[in-house]
Design a protein around this nucleic acid. Structure first.
Lengths: 234, 234
DNA sequence: TGACTTTAGTAGCAATCGGTGAATAATTCG
DNA sequence: CGAATTATTCACCGATTGCTACTAAAGTCA
């Protein structure tokens, strides 16, 4: 099955692959979820926009590469980075990588606009033509982000340390791409013991001031449930 | 940020990486979930057992490689293959791969025992000492399998086309690693319109004969829900 | 044959969850 | 002050879930 007769130190010649790390930078902008794309440097490229990417360096962990690429593209470090999978099939990558490892990189709203016209934020539902593999990475990033929203503090990394519940709900709505009912959202939030109130209040223009909360998850009883067959429909 | 002044055809020399595809073969055995490990071919290896793996071949899609490696290790094709992520950090891989892409590969119970003593099934909660990266791949495979159980027909691929509901429940229990309540399981299953009864019954020794069902998912109304904060506790 | 065991399948209850509309509170604006 | 705006909570009620207990249909064994 394998081809290793000699010890690890002197392995027989093996095919090495060109591996890229591709980052999907995500940020809420207005009330829409947007991703940062970079104008292709190759004037002959069929697609004019691509995700920030690079090949991984020697002995650099993949996640470090993703952080480095994110900082280079955004100017700041993302507040959440998570892998969304490896992509190695016939779909074309702008750099011709054999294998591409996709990462989502989240940054809070208000991240300074990219310099010049070399990069721009695109709403995730209005993307330009892109290389098929990078297009697949974006789709996977959105799916992974949404399905992990309930087990990672993703949404909280898009807010300051102190925030209002309306702000939190808006983040969830943007990330999920659908509206949520206020009362239900708060009831579930409080039941989960994820936030604790501060004694500060913020008056945001007109309307009643909102109480400020901080993210402070508390251990809960492991409420194990039965099985769900949620998305298993034809 | 990047290093590409020339068109795609003539890219500057880039570092190429040794990429492995590592498979976690999973099967229910008795009432336990087991994974297939292969005895290390390197007598000087610190760990005596490892996951089936290989380097990916030229122009071979990763998933094809996973299928090939699975067939080589198991003798049969798995009934479900799914990627669990890319692993590229300092943790050691038995083949010294820079990047390892992990896959889960499920096969039904009763898959013939591996030949000789070169491979063996281990309960997933009694694994021998393994290279750290492969150990991480197994953990990730179990987590991914369990979290996708409600959106992929994973459990059904471990059963024949026609099965009893008790068989199905047992598969879920083995995969999840916990017991489920019979009445609740069946109620949720019927509500999901995933199975349809056949007119056959099976008498399995003692006890009342069980009706046989087949997997036949029907389209359902998209019952959108609110947010869950399930696993977000500290 | 008939009592006992074993496995399959269901009914029904209590508790909780979750979606919804509306009431109430605290501000700004004119 | 009254209208508009935003925050927060309440209460209703149908849906979901965990659980116990019951009925059904076989085999076992004296």
């Amino acid at each position: 099955m394998r081809d290793r007769n000699s010890p690890t130190a002197a392995r027989p010649a093996t095919r090495r692959s060109l591996v890229s790390v591709d980052v999907v930078p995500l940020t809420p902008h207005g009330r829409r979820l947007t991703t940062l794309l970079i104008r292709s440097t190759d004037p002959r490229a069929k697609e004019k926009w691509e995700l920030p990417w690079d090949t991984n360096r020697a002995d650099e962990p993949l996640e470090d590469a993703a952080a480095r690429i994110s900082r280079a593209a955004l100017g700041v470090a993302p507040t959440w980075i998570e892998q969304v999978g490896a992509f190695g099939d016939q779909r074309r990558h702008p750099g011709g990588a054999d294998v591409s490892v996709g990462y989502m990189a989240l940054v809070p709203d208000g991240t300074p606009a990219p310099i010049g016209g070399t990069a721009a934020w695109f709403p995730v539902d209005e993307l330009p033509l892109m290389a098929p593999r990078q297009r697949a990475i974006i789709d996977a990033a959105l799916h992974a982000m949404r399905s992990r929203l309930d087990e990672s503090p993703i949404a909280f990394r898009l807010l300051p340390a102190i925030f209002t519940l309306s702000q939190l709900q808006e983040i969830y709505e943007i990330l999920l791409g659908r509206r949520l009912h206020k009362a239900s959202f708060r009831r579930a939030l409080h039941a989960a013991w994820l936030v604790e109130p501060t004694d500060e209040w913020r008056s945001e223009g007109r309307g009643r001031p909102a109480q400020l909360f901080r993210y402070a998850p508390k251990k809960r009883r492991g409420g194990r449930r039965g099985v769900r067959f949620e998305e298993l429909a034809g």
